[in-house]
């Protein structure tokens, strides 16, 4: 474990050094990708330590990096909007709302405004953060998500046209699922005798979801899994480099 961590730190150090030597700028990140990629693939099949530990540690490292990089993101957000306000670009007034919101939430969260005890969780009862979460964040999230109900209706109205035979099949299937997922489906065909129970709308709806839909889903998932394997392999081997900025090495 110690040697592996040391090796990894050396590699990371090399990446840092390589940043200043242009020809090596891409070589070391590629080497690091190859090393960690192969290590984690091997770790999947070796239960003995330090391999499971490495998997765990790497996940943690990513989180640590992601948390620190938030400073980068937050900084960028502030910079872009402050510049917009300063230069009075088009719709700059909206940027005031963004910057004000950002600063207020950050200050209230960081200083635990309204908290009786410094060690209380940031969402403890009575804190200003908790109030903001309940009174602002929750309704806003729910509002944006509920837009889906409206957009589903407008998209269905526009897209569900029986233009071809395939589109008609899709349309009929959509009707069955829509009705089958409500009590109306039960009422409509509950009178069907036992031998015809397959045509009872909730049963038909379940059949569509669990047979043709599942077959399609599985096929797509197999394709996606192969795509992920191939892309990961290309990245580990350095064939795919566009995520590093380009093809030149």
């Amino acid at each position: 474990m110690f040697f592996l961590t040391l090796l990894l730190l050396l590699l990371l150090g090399s990446v840092g050094l390589a940043f200043f030597i242009r020809p090596l700028r891409k070589f070391f990140p590629l080497l690091l990708t190859l090393f960690t990629g192969l290590l984690l693939v091997v770790a999947l099949f070796i239960p003995a330590q330090p391999f499971p530990k490495l998997e765990e540690e790497f996940s943690m490292w990513f989180d640590v990096i992601a948390v620190f990089s938030f400073i980068l993101g937050g900084g960028n957000l502030l910079r872009v909007h402050l510049m917009k306000i300063q230069q009075k670009k088009r719709d700059w007034q909206y940027s005031i709302v963004t910057v004000t919101g950002f600063v207020i939430v950050l200050v209230i969260g960081l200083f635990k405004v309204g908290s009786k005890n410094w060690s209380d969780p940031y969402l403890a009862q009575g804190t200003a953060f908790k109030w903001m979460y309940d009174a602002v964040f929750v309704p806003l999230q729910a509002t944006i998500f509920s837009l889906l109900a409206f957009f589903v209706a407008s998209a269905a109205f526009r897209a569900f046209r029986a233009k071809t035979r395939e589109a008609t099949i899709l349309l009929v299937a959509a009707f069955i699922i829509l009705i089958g997922r409500t009590p109306v489906g039960v009422w409509l065909t509950s009178w069907l005798p036992n031998p015809l129970q397959f045509f009872h709308i909730p049963n038909l709806s379940t059949w569509i979801l669990s047979v043709p839909n599942m077959a399609g889903q599985r096929a797509i998932m197999i394709g996606i899994a192969l795509g992920i394997i191939s892309t990961s392999l290309k990245m580990i081997l350095g064939i795919e480099r566009s995520w590093l900025g380009g093809d030149e090495s």
């Binding site: 589903v152 109205f157 409500t182």
Partner: peptide, 24 residues
Amino acid sequence: KMAPQTVAHLAIIAFVIIGNIAYF
């Protein structure tokens, strides 16, 4: 909450039917 969902599903079905009649 099942009542609003049921009625909304029926409304969507109605819209799709109207859309198809208009299309044809």
